[in-house]
Design a protein around this nucleic acid. Sequence first.
DNA 1: TTGAAAGCGGTACCAA
DNA 2: TTGGTACCGCTTTCAA
Lengths: 346, 346
Amino acid sequence: MTTMSRKEETTRRLATMRDVAALAGVSVKTVSRVVNQESGVSPELVERVMNAVRLLDYHHNTTASNLRRADQRTSTIGLLLDDVSNPFSSVLHRAIEEVAREHDTLLLASSSDQDAEREEKIALTLAARRIDGLIVVPTPRSQSGLHHIQSLGRPIVFVDRPAVFYDADSVTVDNRYSASQAVQHMARHGHRRIAFLGDNHAVWTASERYLGYVDGMAIAGLQLDQNIVRQDLLNIDMAQAAANELLASAIPPTAFFTGQNLITIGTLRALQHHQLQHRVALVGFDDFLLADLLTPAITVIAQDLAHLGKTAAELLFARIGGDTSLPRRIEVPTTLVVRGSGEIPL
Amino acid sequence: MTTMSRKEETTRRLATMRDVAALAGVSVKTVSRVVNQESGVSPELVERVMNAVRLLDYHHNTTASNLRRADQRTSTIGLLLDDVSNPFSSVLHRAIEEVAREHDTLLLASSSDQDAEREEKIALTLAARRIDGLIVVPTPRSQSGLHHIQSLGRPIVFVDRPAVFYDADSVTVDNRYSASQAVQHMARHGHRRIAFLGDNHAVWTASERYLGYVDGMAIAGLQLDQNIVRQDLLNIDMAQAAANELLASAIPPTAFFTGQNLITIGTLRALQHHQLQHRVALVGFDDFLLADLLTPAITVIAQDLAHLGKTAAELLFARIGGDTSLPRRIEVPTTLVVRGSGEIPL
DNA sequence: TTGAAAGCGGTACCAA
DNA sequence: TTGGTACCGCTTTCAA
């Protein structure tokens, strides 16, 4: 294995099929056949071509190949997430990657930061790269940007939030039902004054979870009190502040339902600050690492992200493969994971 | 905004520059100029071309464009991580994405699962796509696979672990020094019997951290005892079992230095199981969400992953931009975050 | 079984 | 300022 100097490498032109053909003394078409492992080439020629490939360190050029190819596939799909670094997105990413690998497909992953403008810009460059399809967690004001992909005729599957196009697929969880279950769970342990702390209400999941909270309160026969409802909490600190404020109020809640990961953590901080973590009940939406190691351990509604991602990816590849059946709206189930914090009695 | 039926879309051929040129009544070259925002086209023609673009819903084809382009850039870089879903990888991913965005470059991200064979396969398909460069967290037995990228003349930057090519750049943290600091920190609080729990010793970071542990013990004047050293702990459960065993032994350690995230968590579980979390000291390598919310809060050596990723990405883009200076081995500093668990006295 | 020539959708080069 | 033509590296088509 000889390693060349950087200069030599960048100077030298990469070997093409033409070069390989010349060295092997065959036509370009024959090289193409061998490289693509097509049948019907004599073993002798295969041998000669392969030798030339090794000698010249030839590397196939997918880009050029795709240009002329009949199916126009790039073996690449786009993945547009809120933020590749948050646990929700990255676990989803991994599940999708596994399915993609089975289809010999690579992922162009990007973070939209829930910004529709950024989403559109990314969609445009993905369209220019002629991706085979897109899996997207849409931003609240999505819509127009993703149209670039659709007008290419490439399928889109929406994840975590419903499709913004009537003819696209989506895979979500039943946020509303799950949330109502969480509230009823605490009501069953005697709580009547259950607070709701929620994310940006413009986000579909957040509003659905709020509706579920309302449902749950109604089903349990409890009075809704807007004084113990706080929405649009965008980070840990805001959640912590909101929880602190409620805990310090005249008639504090005896239980909390938190609509998202970071909000649960912020609430936890507030409870610890007031030394109330063993007296006030808490159920959070979304599981998180170490939830079982805290004292008390945290009861949560867990989404099966691996399932969510796998389902979305399989749906996308079915579409890429030519499945033209009616658009589907798939809902994957959640699980109430009982660990302690949600079972603290009144 | 009209939405077409799926059938119509897949049937219809996508508009090309030729189509746009025909409709606008100009040459293809003029369309190319307008689309690429080159100067020197009369405003009137720009207008006509843009109208045709909109009318035909023309989308530029990067793939075809790159084929003839002089610089042969694909505006895509590869990112090869252990596992896109683990927090370490995904935070790194995000930091790199930010820098890439400034260069209008997309990321093809993949998980190697520390498997050299998988790494090679991915490297090969990335090479075929003619990525502009690669950022990689190499697998323990890397080497040959990544050669595919190098022989293309594309730069590689190694992250978290040293370069396997003498002429490539790397960005790491000083694992050995940091680990020795952690050990000395606990020694300063009176501990003499400090256990080491480590990851797969074939992984460079793991072995460096073990060496740092040895250094730290020596500097603190403490005796090394292999009975309280456990390596090759590959997951939370193995770490938990190892810690349990040590805690139940005749002369248990009074402090633990854990070489990695999941090992810290496994050890934590064991300590909680034995109700020893307030009596046995613990410092872990790598910070993690909620480390500050546990009781006691966990003292850790934190890596600045955003800094690590940003540095690697900037280095890569410098190389892509033509920087041919000598290979660099950059080390970014770590921080000892004091939170409680590491300061439990003997 | 093998190869020659045309063409995929653009850009480079040079002439008008 | 605008356009014609060759050509990027590969696949397709069709003939030998």
